[in-house]
């Protein structure tokens, strides 16, 4: 991940990461379900359960009431995959975040393409979730830019002290993951049995499998974004750019992602689903000020030179 790396090595690393991304996301979802089960004193499904679900869905027949459903499901998958492409090629942080948001927009459009009332409720709630959470990610990215000098993840990945400057933003982003990954207390749009998986109500068979695949990429990407707060470069300083350093850095990121997942599942299991209008209130009154506070400190230090 060092800039001294040649184009070939960086490309190779990116390709390997991209190929592993859906499997890592799938494993994260399976491990999440297992963690959830253990917290409820259950045995829980096998860790490979999302894998079995995916192949099962592929062999089911279609019942789409509107051909747009398939198009929107495909768009959801492709934009999540594109966001992961930008992430694993160490590209633009802001573009990654916007692409994840765009994917959610297409999931909402899939909801609006269906005719079921729950589908429309779910689509509206999904838009509300994006509206509440996306600004937190974007503002954090802007603050990161001030510290880092640009939006490129490849420079950010070398900056080990980044977490020291973003204690509040890291907490807020962890909460953003909870909302984005459809976990409680604000799993508004899928909401299990309450509105029967919201925007996905009318999807079935291969379309639903595509959405699942999109969710694998999304889970990998969101946890990956969170792990960018934690880099190892000063510890590895003499090693930076060598294979062991990159592997060690990736292992630390996997560990951080695992702990973040544990946190998300813990919040999911220890809270109940809230009313939908509490999400924007909580987000704009509690979380946004936290990010702003973090931003002001960052600007004072790096842009205005007050500290």
């Amino acid at each position: 991940m060092d800039l001294d790396w040649g184009l070939v090595e960086l490309t190779l690393l990116s390709v390997v990461l991209f190929v592993l991304a859906p499997f890592a996301g799938m494993l994260a979802m399976g491990i999440g379900r297992k963690m959830s089960a253990r917290m409820q004193n259950r045995v829980g499904p096998p860790i490979l359960q999302p894998w079995y679900d995916f192949w099962k869905l592929l062999m089911k027949s279609e019942t789409a009431s509107n051909p747009l459903l398939g198009t929107m499901a495909f768009a959801f998958f492709i934009f999540n995959a594109l966001a992961v492409v930008v992430l694993v090629t160490f590209g633009d942080l802001l573009v990654t975040i916007i692409l994840f948001g765009l994917a959610q927009l297409f999931l909402s459009l899939a909801g609006f393409a269906g005719s079921a009332p729950y589908s429309h409720i779910g689509a509206n709630r999904n838009l509300l979730q994006v509206l509440s959470v996306e600004p937190l990610f974007v503002l954090t990215a802007i603050a990161v830019m001030v510290v880092n000098g640009n939006y490129f993840i490849r420079d950010l990945a070398l900056n080990s002290s980044i977490i020291l400057y973003f204690p509040m933003a890291a907490v807020v982003i962890l909460f953003g993951l909870v909302v984005w990954m459809q976990k409680g207390p604000f799993d508004l749009s899928t909401a299990h049995q309450e509105i029967v998986y919201g925007p996905m109500v009318e999807l079935s068979g291969k379309n639903l499998a595509l959405v699942e695949l999109g969710h694998w990429f999304e889970t990998f990407g969101l946890l990956g974004l969170f792990t960018l707060f934690f880099n190892l470069s000063p510890v590895l300083d003499p090693l930076v750019g060598t294979i062991p350093a990159v592997v060690l850095d990736l292992l630390v990121k996997v560990l951080v992602g695992f702990i973040a997942l544990l946190g998300v599942i813990w919040i999911d299991n220890s809270t109940t689903r809230n009313h939908w209008d509490r999400l924007p209130k909580f987000s704009f009154y509690a979380l946004l000020p936290l990010v702003f506070l973090n931003m002001i400190v960052i600007y004072a230090k790096f842009a205005w030179g007050w500290i």
């Binding site: 089960a37 259950r42 829980g44 096998p46 679900d53 019942t63 029967v196 998986y197 009318e202």
Partner: peptide
Amino acid sequence: TPLYDIERFGILNKGNPKFAD
């Protein structure tokens, strides 16, 4: 419920005919 825990066989109660097997 945790006592019988059908999810350990991958069985999920989905409440949606389009998802159901």
